[in-house]
Design a protein around this nucleic acid. Structure first.
Length: 319
DNA sequence: AAGATTTGACCAGG
DNA sequence: CCTGGTCAAATCTT
């Protein structure tokens, strides 16, 4: 127990210190020589540090607040940034961006990309990606033509772990079908079971029987990725605690706790006074969140709204 | 026959 | 010119 607390404390301090450093670096970058890309990257790093810190405090508020999945329209978000006009003067600009976010899905078996996430997709392309062992598949919402739904997703098998599929969603569903989709927890379980059944059916049909169970689905990032360069950086840096973007499971993955530490951490979480809270580690719970993107409420207000009886005592992290 | 997938061609951005 | 994303004709599946 104490060991994990020490580890949490150390990580928390590291993250906050890191965040401060990024803020200072950003502060020094806001001069005529800094590029908007540099500033964007630093901002993402700052948010990442704060998010990780919150995760360590067992308070994943940002994962709920920043989750764009539940928005009903295919909105584009504005990215504010500084650029230069032709006279090389710094000017303030807004860029329209299609919101996108990614997650990783771990399964067993070879049918990973076909797992059921509650929406119906139509594959429209596949591409070999430079430096990747596996091709990237492109899907769009089945209802694009009938209802003009612009949601798309990309699925790519991980190089490091063939059981992991990286899924990047772009845009949000505005089709009727998606709005009526019930992605409650029970329904998700049903989807998983259905998936398992289909996998087994297919494999048996191929005379290649093996145990096919969905081991785990884990959301690694629901962060809206604001540019292609950041997106490519996400995967490149996803195991780097200092450059990876905000991740809902960043508490675990980038910091490489030992198995023993992970086990103890689970015990802590289970015995914790916060353990009754269901955190949004899958779209299942996230999707029922009343929040959509950023709101005018402060973080405190939003947390209070989600968990009205939540009392957080962080002193134990510093004992 | 209708809908979904495959795959080479095309296109835009860097 | 290279790369990633999309298109669309051919093919496959239901």
């Amino acid at each position: 127990m104490e060991k994990v607390k020490a580890w949490e404390k150390k990580t928390l301090i590291t993250e906050l210190t890191q965040g401060m450093e990024f803020v200072n670096r950003l502060k020094s970058k806001i001069d005529p020589l800094a590029s908007p890309e540099e500033c964007d990257l630093l901002l993402e790093k700052i948010l990442s540090s704060l998010d990780k810190s919150l995760s360590i405090l067992n308070l994943k508020a940002f994962n709920v607040i920043r989750e764009p999945y539940w928005c009903s329209k295919n909105e584009v978000s504005d990215l504010d940034y500084y650029s230069r006009d032709q006279g090389k003067n710094m000017v303030f600009k807004k860029r329209k961006l299609l919101q996108q976010w990614s997650k990783q899905v771990r399964i067993s078996g070879i049918e990973g990309p076909n797992y059921d996430d509650g929406y119906s997709w139509r594959k429209y392309g596949q591409k070999d990606i430079l430096g990747a062992n596996h091709p990237r598949a492109y899907y769009r919402c089945t209802h694009k033509n009938t209802q003009g739904c612009l949601a798309t997703k990309q699925v790519q098998q991980s190089d490091e772990d063939p059981l992991v599929f990286e899924v990047t969603y772009k845009g949000k569903h505005n089709c009727k079908a998606s709005q009526s989709v019930d992605i409650s927890e029970e329904n998700q379980k049903a989807n998983y079971n259905k998936n398992q059944y289909q996998l087994q059916k297919q494999k048996v049909g191929n005379q290649n029987v093996e145990k096919l169970n969905i081991i785990k689905e884990e959301t690694l990032s629901f962060t809206p990725l604001k540019s292609e360069s950041e997106k490519s950086q996400f995967f490149a840096n996803s195991m780097d605690p200092f450059t990876s973007p905000i991740t809902s499971e960043s508490l675990y993955l980038p910091l490489f706790p030992t198995q023993e530490e992970e086990l103890e951490m689970d015990q802590i979480l289970q015995s914790s006074k916060l353990s009754h809270i269901e955190f949004s580690t899958t779209p299942t719970s996230v999707i029922n969140s009343p929040f959509c993107g950023y709101s005018d409420l402060s973080v405190d207000d939003q947390v209070d709204n989600i968990y009205p009886n939540l009392m957080i005592d962080i002193s134990e992290f510093f004992t």
